[in-house]
Nucleic acid binder design. Structure first.
Length: 570
RNA sequence: GUCCCGGUAGCUCAGCUGGAUAGAGCGGCGCCCUCCUAAGGCGCAGGCCACAGGUUCGACUCCUGUCCGGGACGCCA
């Protein structure tokens, strides 16, 4: 494993910090300022402003009672010389603009090649354990597109956090015992007895989809289901509702797992709601809430005074019929995450559940067990609508045309499905255009990015056919022959990758990585068109091929974080 | 009525924890393959960042209010 070298931004930040330290000495302009603001280094929008800009002089202006530009001048004068930095300017209201040497970019390319799959990874998480929960669909039906969005977002988050040095546990939580499961069992039983949803004898809240018939047929035919460590055999005895229930749950669990596997999504832990009752976690939670004094009895029910913790009204914990409301096991479940050592817990949910967030957080606070106020962190996604042929595809469970995640994967492919579900900010509603996702054309960003990777592979194949060998060492030594604008722009784009990974992980915003990869691919395609990669001149050729190797590595790393393939040929 | 999320080019959307002249793709118009995959590239046109205030050196970004669209508000899960 290569030791990760210090990221560019951080190296520059340290230079500025050293300059600031100089100015705090004795009677320097910053002397006597106790709290210096954190130094922010950011990429500039145009190279006219250099490569990186620092706004610290403006931030310090008031504290130091000095003009921003005067401070900037003093900082620049105190800035230590460094081979990374070619030029320093002061511009606008007091920006310090840093222009890097070409050699700085060459180093980034070389690092991408040398570090390989590790390039872009960082140690920000310091190996601390974070639980990431997502999908968590109840086993009452096939996964639909909304679950697909949850899976794509959650899985990419998990990969990003892993790349950022956290110890990630992927978790799937499901209810295997509640009212909805009863409805499932009753539905399968009814189908098994030849009752269909149009029949007056159909269960009131039954699941009407055709898949119920399939499950019933399997149960009748004595099919077997192996899932979650269980081996289930359909007995065909529809009077044994408990057996029907176990079989149906197992069947749908297996179905969901198969679909998720086809989507490239796997979990470390499957957590059953029923286990929270079986192992006393629910009772422990209720006792702790009672003991902490945040509960009261009223109207024959037990209430949590969640308004003490920011909820807008108190919530019933135990109904007057003696059963717990769903949010009690929810609190117990998140307590178990804390107790299992998840220092951070991230819960990915559909935004239609946002109403439950406040009460779960309130419940965790009311336990008074030192769980941080921000626990768990929620990432919510908005609804997905699907378009085909310019018309909306209805997704309702009741309708016959039930579009499942599996249907979508089969129709447009795993990579395109993942990309489209991840490419938008999770906070905004998403329109999934099946025709666009299927298009094998430049309308489709999936191919655009993957094609960049395939194109590089193709160039190396061409080189091999022509008997041209690539000397990577010579390439690295000769990078300075690449002075054209497009190559430089490509190197700079490549150098942004570690920052893209870091900020996507930190902000829990996987879509920003998708955006970055499109920009990297664009920079590559531009350079590809501007200059032949296999010119006769061998120093230049070696350098261009070396740059291609670096870009190829970054594309592969980035696509992998999105759970997508990096094809060598298209 | 309360709460959450959106409102940026004709369309679909980016805009990184407030930064310098607002970005990309598609669509429109005009170009580029005797050349490594044209699944590509180049150029032009296109904007009161929903609206009105406020905060400050500086606001698409933060705060308040209004309007529009979507969602959530149960002793359902």
């Amino acid at each position: 494993m290569n030791s990760q070298s210090t990221p560019l931004k951080q190296q520059l930040r340290e230079l500025i910090e050293r300059a600031m330290a100089t100015l705090t000495q004795d009677d320097g302009p910053l002397a006597g300022i106790s709290e210096l603001p954190p130094v922010q280094i950011e990429r500039t929008k145009t190279r006219e402003h250099g490569d990186f800009a620092c706004n610290v002089a403006m931030q310090l202006a008031r504290l130091a009672r000095a003009k921003p530009r005067d401070l900037a001048t003093a900082l620049v004068a105190a800035l230590p010389a460094d081979p990374l930095v070619a030029k320093v300017d002061i511009a606008g209201p007091g920006f310090i603009n840093l222009s890097l040497s070409d050699n700085a970019w060459h180093q980034q390319v070389n690092q991408a090649i040398a570090q390989g799959r590790d390039f872009g990874r960082n140690q920000n998480g310091q190996g601390v354990c974070v639980g990431v929960e997502y999908v968590s669909a109840n086993p009452t039906g096939p996964l639909h597109v909304g679950h697909g969005r949850a899976a794509a977002i959650g899985d990419t988050l998990a990969r990003l956090l892993d790349a950022a040095g956290w110890k990630v546990v992927r978790e799937f939580y499901y209810n295997d015992a509640g009212v909805q499961i009863d409805n499932l069992a009753l539905s399968v039983q009814a189908r098994g007895r030849g009752i269909d949803p149009e029949n007056p004898a159909w269960p009131a809240d039954g699941y009407r989809g055709d898949y119920i018939q399939v499950v019933a047929d399997g149960f009748a035919a004595g099919e077997t289901v192996d899932v979650d460590g269980q081996h289930l055999v359909g007995s065909g005895d529809f009077d044994d509702l408990d057996a029907v229930r176990r079989f149906a749950v197992g069947w749908l669990r297996r179905e969901q797992n198969d679909d998720l596997a086809a989507f490239g999504v796997q979990f470390d832990v499957y957590y059953l709601e029923s286990s929270l009752y079986a192992d006393g976690k629910v009772a422990e939670t209720v006792d702790a809430l009672n003991q902490s004094g945040h509960t009261y009895e009223q109207d024959g029910a037990l209430w949590l005074r969640s308004t003490d913790f920011g909820d807008d009204k108190d919530r019933v914990m135990r109904k007057s019929d003696g059963n717990y409301t769903y949010f009690v096991p929810d609190v117990a479940y998140h307590l178990s995450k804390w107790q299992r050592g998840y220092v951070r817990a991230i819960t990915e949910l559909g935004a239609d559940h946002h109403g439950s967030l406040a009460r779960v957080k309130a419940g965790l606070q009311a336990l008074e067990q030192g769980i941080p106020a921000g626990y768990p962190e929620y990432v919510l996604h908005q609804m997905v609508t699907v378009m085909r042929g310019g018309a909306e595809v209805k997704l309702g469970k009741r309708a016959g045309g039930y579009l499942t995640l599996r249907d979508l994967i089969d129709e447009v492919g795993r990579d395109a499905t993942r990309y489209f579900l991840i490419s938008r900010k999770s906070d905004s509603q998403l329109t999934f255009d099946i025709d666009l996702a299927r298009a094998q054309s430049n309308d489709n960003p999936v191919y655009y990015i993957q094609y960049a990777h395939a194109r590089i592979c193709s160039v190396f194949r061409q080189a091999a056919e022509k008997g041209i060998s690539h000397d990577p060492q010579a390439g690295q030594a000769n990078m300075s022959v690449l002075t054209d604008e497009q190559s430089l722009a490509l190197m700079i784009e490549l150098s942004r990758y570690p920052e893209a990974v870091e900020s996507a992980a930190e902000g829990l915003e996987p879509h920003t990585l998708a955006t970055y990869l499109r920009e990297l691919a664009a920079a590559f395609h531009t350079a590809y068109n501007a200059h032949p990669i296999l010119p006769a001149d061998s120093p230049e050729r070696d350098a261009r091929l070396t740059l291609c190797l670096g870009v190829k590595q970054v594309l592969a790393n980035g696509l992998d974080l999105l759970g997508m393939g990096a094809p060598e040929q298209m």
